[in-house]
Amino acid sequence: MAQTVVHKANTRGVADHGWLKSYQSFSFAGYYNPERINFGALRVLNDDIVTGGMGFGEHPHDNMEIISIPLEGELQHKDSMGNTATIKAGEIQVMSAGTGIYHSEYNPDASKPAKFLQIWLFPNKRNVTPRYDQILLDATEQKNEFVQILSPNADDAGVWIYQDAWFNLAKFDAETSKTYQLHKKGNGVYIFVLKGEVEVNGQVLETRDGFGIWETDSFAVKAITDAEFLLMEVPMEF
């Protein structure tokens, strides 16, 4: 019998710093909920809005896989590895913090906010040499499919990380139903709805709701309306 957990959008932590508004699915900084520390190896899922011309000053990370998925606008990235890059909607960025890095993120467009998902996963290897990558996602990918954007394999579709995790983005037309098959026994999937309404395992989810499912090999996702969502398959034990 599959195990599930539902996190409705309005139950997330909220931090409003003026220049940054952050909606937090799991405990982070000033938001603490002992029942929402992580979902398996998924430690952080922040839905962030950065005001135009503002950003995160230089700060450190170590032994964490950090994924950024811009949804609107763009962010300028600089880090202690010498990388300077701009990431924008339609791209995905990954950093393996490993032995330690410093980085900053800044919205260079003063006229509009940047919206992005900030996702942290615990790695399966500690103290690796830090690394950075970003790719343009294939905008020609078909609708009504699970489109892989991250995996453990460097030669597979999307970016790769030091964890047995697979991420898929999906854009479904209303009434589309598709079965997701998990890649690895012992993994679970956390689904985050970006737009619209979907139904998973009998549970109706709306925009920005989260839903975790584990102890199953597969499950069906049905779009009630036109919908966009992110599926994050991660180890439940790590």
Score class of each variant (00 low, 15 high):
residue 31 Y to H: 13
residue 141 E to H: 13
residue 32 Y to W: 05
residue 35 E to W: 07
residue 150 L to E: 01
residue 88 K to S: 14
residue 87 I to Y: 00
residue 170 A to V: 03
residue 175 E to G: 02
residue 69 I to Y: 11
residue 131 R to V: 13
residue 47 D to M: 04
residue 150 L to P: 10
residue 207 T to N: 11
residue 116 F to M: 06
residue 108 P to Y: 04
residue 8 K to W: 01
residue 112 K to T: 07
residue 220 A to H: 05
residue 89 A to M: 12
residue 188 G to T: 11
residue 119 I to D: 10
residue 21 K to Q: 06
residue 22 S to P: 06
residue 19 W to M: 02
residue 59 H to S: 08
residue 133 D to F: 05
residue 117 L to V: 09
residue 27 S to Y: 12
residue 72 E to V: 12
residue 10 N to A: 04
residue 196 G to K: 15
residue 124 N to P: 00
residue 80 S to C: 03
residue 157 A to K: 08
residue 104 S to V: 05
residue 187 N to D: 12
residue 142 Q to R: 12
residue 31 Y to L: 13
residue 2 A to G: 01
residue 167 F to A: 06
residue 115 K to V: 09
residue 127 N to L: 05
residue 88 K to E: 15
residue 188 G to W: 09
residue 200 V to L: 06
residue 123 P to L: 06
residue 139 A to S: 08
residue 32 Y to M: 14
residue 68 S to D: 06
residue 142 Q to P: 14
residue 217 D to I: 00
residue 36 R to F: 03
residue 183 H to Q: 07
residue 83 N to A: 05
residue 47 D to I: 03
residue 155 D to Q: 08
residue 57 G to R: 13
residue 208 R to H: 14
residue 89 A to H: 11
residue 207 T to F: 14
residue 130 P to M: 01
residue 109 D to Y: 02
residue 170 A to C: 07
residue 184 K to I: 13
residue 231 L to Q: 03
residue 72 E to S: 15
residue 76 Q to V: 12
residue 191 I to K: 10
residue 85 A to Q: 15
residue 197 E to S: 08
residue 67 I to G: 12
residue 25 S to Q: 05
residue 195 K to Y: 04
residue 6 V to M: 11
residue 215 E to I: 00
residue 50 V to N: 02
residue 128 V to K: 01
residue 41 A to N: 01
residue 110 A to K: 10
residue 133 D to L: 08
residue 206 E to P: 00
residue 123 P to A: 09
residue 33 N to V: 02
residue 170 A to Q: 05
residue 180 Y to K: 09
residue 130 P to Q: 02
residue 29 A to F: 03
residue 76 Q to K: 13
residue 213 I to N: 08
residue 166 W to S: 06
residue 11 T to A: 09
residue 169 L to H: 13
residue 164 D to K: 10
residue 187 N to M: 07
residue 87 I to D: 12
residue 126 R to N: 00
residue 181 Q to V: 07
residue 238 F to G: 13
residue 92 I to F: 06
residue 227 A to W: 02
residue 126 R to I: 11
residue 185 K to S: 15
residue 65 E to C: 02
residue 56 F to I: 02
residue 36 R to E: 06
